[in-house]
Design a binder for these strands. Structure first.
Lengths: 347, 347
DNA sequence: CTCCTATATTACAACGTTGTATCAGGGATT
DNA sequence: AATCCCTGATACAACGTTGTAATATAGGAG
């Protein structure tokens, strides 16, 4: 079927090893021979067999990305960034979905399918600190995100605390000092919610503003409707606030939505900021201010670290890398481009 | 490093081929031998080398999914469904992003990386009918979505016309007969927008309602903000309508948002329906009625057809398969669970 | 007790590639 | 002019698996 080195060699009139040498840019090949071989390759449309190459070399040219679900916008955008970064280095990405489920996450770690790739980018959700010892894989691995800290494994993550603090500072700088929080996790310390809440509290503390638990909404799910429900609850509670910090963009959008429906103007009455810089924040009404946690940098860094680890399996000690973040100020806090609502015109 | 058949054979005290026979469930293996071998496999933690297996067998156990961008929610959810369906058959999915760009799409078709998989699920966006002849790949391929019709290649798609017609019928059944459209593509015939508009027109025609171009908003981009802008434009135009059909969910949400901001109640004043059944439609305010185009079925069918094609490369003639769809009626048309807005409580 | 068949195991080759070792030729050095 | 070294090409083996063909063992019939 497909042409092999031998076929090319026959056509070019050289040994099949010479063809291999041409392909791998070995030094000692005469220009004449090289062009003869190249002509034969073109003529036959020869493509090196990747399975054979991989058997011989021990490398596949692929990496695995394991995430909870692509359905969740954050992970879809993370996967997008990872694929783009991998593509830039000539790598293919193979995706596993764990559903954020502890069992499936452990299963992925020991799956024979991991062999199809040279390494694993693993974004666990169901595993807890107590599972740290189980987080071992037969291929080099880089962890993405929070939750698992101990364990001798490279780790790339966002600066949750500092970024949340910057988001809060952004609101404080605008003169808001009653900042509600939507999406806290009760009692959590090391998860995204716990860290972000900590950043929020640090920002308040730095300006001598007391933390007020009555304007913090707790919940365990981060869907848009949860943000909406939380905001309804806050409004019903009768507490006052002039800004909202959503633990992620989806929550912020749900909250913003309810605020507007209740007659508040965003940002004039209440400023809103989210977290994640999802693509959709660029298209909401008003566009949503948020924090870009450095998703692209996470992807690129993770791949760089993974490749290093693949090339030097027992090189340096495991690294702990935090990416740079950026507050992205849009209309929901700055209010630059508010679109006037047209009056109803009958139905 | 990793154990091989030979290592297992040495431990079990049999020939390495016998070990292979055990693994591949060959008939003539004595139970005693089998258990000896299995013990050795367990002891060494033996895992078959996939590269070698793939070199020998010619199969990889992976398929490639090529989509424009995972950032776009529709494709993220499609990928989610494809990965789940592949997983159920023991296949791994390898994802390529084309950016919806014609050049990149052609590049993917001839990429050597395709070799890492047994087949391709291809969802083109940039390619036009005139490129049909170029749509050939070295591995079996199944096309997903519209745009390319000719070409002798299996094709799985949704029933755009019938589904759009059903969505429109749903609105008509509710007594709405001034149904605005958001997201038409001017002059398009075979794309999603063209087909869905056709379904809309068929539904009107069937009830003897005249098509009114003044309540159809044209645009080439399908972001939320486009839906919002279109709705502002419709309102400004002063035309009347009692329902909106968004060509996709994102547009519908943008439109719904502007409607509400302008003081209309959804669905009391204006009912809204979208298309795609994105996960987020379950969490919007109100939850969005939409059409489930059978994404899960598309994924499962595409994989089934692809596997058939992989096993019998020149089997039957190329198939053209359309999945079943379902109108998903939620609050934006039925209004069952409208949440009362709480009155503002100062800031 | 021998022959034959069915069963169980083995030996060998092949998939297509690349690394190592080997070998032929030509120019520079002695 | 003979030796040496470097260039350029080749032969061989190996990566780990599976299919095919061959062989060894056991059980039943003649």
């Amino acid at each position: 079927m497909a042409a092999t080195l031998h076929d090319v060699a026959r056509v070019a009139g050289v040994s099949f090893k010479t063809v291999s040498n041409v392909i791998n840019n070995h030094p000692h090949v005469r220009p004449v021979t090289r062009s003869k071989v190249e002509a034969a390759i073109a003529e036959l449309g020869y493509r090196p067999n990747l399975a054979a190459r991989s058997l011989r070399s021990g490398h596949t040219g692929a990496i695995t990305l394991a995430v909870p679900q692509l359905k969740l916008p954050y992970f879809a955008e993370l996967a997008d960034a990872v694929i783009a970064a991998a593509e830039a280095r000539g790598l293919v990405v193979l995706i596993e979905q764990t559903g954020g489920n502890r069992e499936r996450e452990l299963e992925v770690l020991s799956s024979p399918r991991l062999q199809m790739s040279d390494g694993l980018l693993f974004s666990p959700l169901g595993l807890g600190e107590e599972d740290a010892a189980l987080v071992k894989s037969e291929v080099p691995m880089v962890l993405l995100g929070e939750r698992i800290f101990s364990g001798d494994c490279d780790h790339v993550t966002m600066q949750n605390v500092a970024a949340a603090r910057a988001a809060t500072d952004h609101l404080l700088d605008l003169g808001r000092n009653r900042i509600a929080v939507v999406g806290a996790h009760d009692g959590e310390v090391i998860g995204s919610a716990g860290l972000r809440l900590r950043g929020y509290r640090e920002a308040l503390a730095a300006r001598g503003i007391a933390y007020d638990d009555s304007i913090v909404a707790y919940m365990w799910s981060w869907h848009r409707s949860n943000g909406a429900a939380a905001m309804r609850e806050l409004l019903a509670r009768g507490v006052t606030f002039d800004a909202v910090f959503g633990m992620n963009d989806t929550l912020a959008q749900g909250a913003m939505r309810v605020l507007q429906q209740a007659g508040y103007r965003v940002p004039e009455d209440v400023a809103v900021i989210g977290f994640d810089d999802l693509d959709e924040t660029r298209y909401s009404l008003p566009t949503l201010s948020t924090v870009d946690p450095g998703r692209v940098e996470i992807a690129e860094t993770a791949i760089r670290v993974l490749l290093e680890r693949i090339m030097h399996p027992d090189g340096s000690a495991p690294q702990e890398i935090e990416t740079t973040f950026k507050v992205v100020a849009r209309e929901s806090t700055l209010g630059q481009a508010t679109v006037p609502a047209h009056p109803p015109s009958g139905s």
